[in-house]
């Protein structure tokens, strides 16, 4: 090997590589986009960044792979822990990385309330459509009809559109990208890390589970990636389509963008009242 190294590796704990993710798992691509955003923002050391995750495959991204302070917490509880960290030391930028089951199901209440508070957190939700770590059971994001171990006759429930739901809250930034939209995703990370630096910033990444979604469709991760390049389309483009066409596509884009004071600012204001 010559000395060339993947640019992401400088943000990673190399001693624990290769990662424990399945071959072709899209989690690694999310990491690349995130690290490229850091690099382009010229943030080379993540000392002042704290990563908080819950339980699930995507929760393993920061713990142990990112070289930064990380808290690998209980299932669903990443957001409250992150809230505690941020409140206790607002100088730290706190980033939550989790899956759809972790953040939207067992942690759904925390997600809503953090968004309601416009809590100063970056939340990255990797939506792999299932509970990947426990063998692909149905999640709140699983499409209707999908066969999983807990829905052997096809999922009878409608999935939850987490990004749209959060767009209706007090959150500052809500975006949803597909893993195939790498550049958009990276730019979105740049936006919430470098530009909108306060409030609740939520990015959903649509990245179907390699093992329990893609393989069940008899596809390879590469094939799925290419397919997603066609099925994930921007919100505006989707709206121009006839209604019956729309269901075939996955809407992506920025659902909401704001730069209102976050909870930390509001809390400081509140405390100043107490001191008067």
């Amino acid at each position: 090997m010559s000395g060339h190294e993947h640019p992401s590796l400088k943000y990673m704990r190399k001693e624990v590589l290769p990662t424990a993710f399945c071959p072709g798992c899209f989690n690694g691509i999310v990491m690349n986009a995130l690290f490229q955003a850091f690099e382009e923002l010229e943030i080379l050391d993540l000392k002042k960044y704290v990563f908080v995750s819950g339980i699930g495959c995507s929760s393993w991204i920061p713990s142990p792979y990112i070289k930064a302070d990380s808290l690998h917490t209980l299932h669903g509880r990443a957001i409250p822990v992150a809230t505690g960290v941020k409140l206790a030391n607002p100088d730290l930028e706190v980033i939550v990385i989790g899956g759809d089951g972790d953040l939207a199901s067992i942690g759904g209440n925390h997600l809503l309330h953090a968004a309601r508070r416009n809590m100063d957190l970056v939340v990255i939700m990797i939506n792999n459509l299932v509970y990947g770590m426990t063998r692909g059971q149905a999640a709140p994001t699983t499409p209707k009809g999908m066969i999983t171990p807990t829905t052997p006759y096809g999922n009878p429930e409608e999935p939850m559109d987490v990004a749209r739901l959060l767009a209706s809250t007090n959150a500052n930034y809500v975006a949803k990208w597909c893993i195939s939209q790498y550049m958009f995703l990276k730019n979105s990370f740049k936006k919430v890390l470098g530009e909108i630096k306060r409030g609740f910033r939520f990015i959903e990444v649509y990245a179907p589970c390699t093992t329990f979604v893609i393989r069940r469709e008899n596809k390879t991760p590469g094939q799925k990636l290419k397919e997603l390049m066609n099925t994930c389309i921007g919100l505006e483009k989707l709206e121009k389509m006839p209604r019956e066409e729309r269901t075939k596509y996955i809407p992506t884009g920025v659902f909401k963008e704001n730069d209102k004071p976050g909870f930390i600012d509001n809390y400081r204001q509140y405390v100043s009242i107490s001191k008067r």
């Binding site: 669903g76 509880r77 409250p80 809230t83 505690g84 960290v85 409140l87 206790a88 925390h110 107490s274």
Partner: peptide
Amino acid sequence: PEHGGVFIQAEDELAAINMLIGASWAG
């Protein structure tokens, strides 16, 4: 607030105890 500390009303007890964990690690 008078003593330079932080008070937050959590959405439930699950959140409360986990916020404590975060704050404790933050010092």
